[in-house]
Amino acid sequence: MLNDLPDAPLLSVRDLTRYYGERIGCADVSFDLYEGEVLAVVGESGSGKSTLLSLLATELEASAGSIRYRMRDGIARDLATLTEAERRLLLRTDWGFVRQDSTQGLRMSVSAGGNIGERLMAVGARHYGNIRGTSLDWLGRVEIDRGRIDDIPKAFSGGMRQRLQIARNLVTHPRLVFMDEPTSGLDVSVQARLLDLIRGLVSELGLAVIIVTHDLSVARLLSHRIMVMKGGRVIEAGLTDRVLDDPHQPYTQLLVSSVLAA
């Protein structure tokens, strides 16, 4: 698998900074992300995780710094220079965003099949039978009963909604997926199944993922690398096992030692 990785990073972030007036949202964040790599961003509430994710997903404009993304044609481009049309095309084809609040990531009054098919139709699919076939296939892959294809997400449980979000995002075979606390608010057994699913899909599809979480066990299970944030800055970064088993910074040590053992 490692041999397949191209040399150039998929995403290359340098000195990314965002101010909210005088306050720092996040500051001087730099990292590279390669294809198929899962990066966890951990930290307490207010540490700048969500700001960073919004910046990366181009939902927020950076105060300083750059984000370069290697497009499907192999050319790395600065995201700030994309036109609105290019940016939105990227968002609905090459990227995915699984949100903490499923009501923001799904169309709640549109059936599960329509939710999954939306991206396909947005890029020009005009054959109902094919769209429906693809939707059914994806429902199966995210372990939702195929008989629920015409039900609306309002009738779904929290765990099912998150799985539907994943299907909706992955249907166009994106290369980069952002996940914002995808498992929070779910009970532990549902969480475990969802994590298992995400892990399977990530390795099967070779996805690059940036996952924001405050749950270190989620980070340990899914990610290859970890960035620890505090006060808007990255205070420690490295391989997941190294950071969690041998934390260098006092704050990271505090985080790791705060995890309740089951």
Binding site: G114, M121, A122
Partner: peptide
């Protein structure tokens, strides 16, 4: 960006 319109017809 008119994919949404077809979502309605899909529904």
């Amino acid at each position: 960006e008119y994919g949404l319109m077809h979502v309605k017809l899909y529904e």
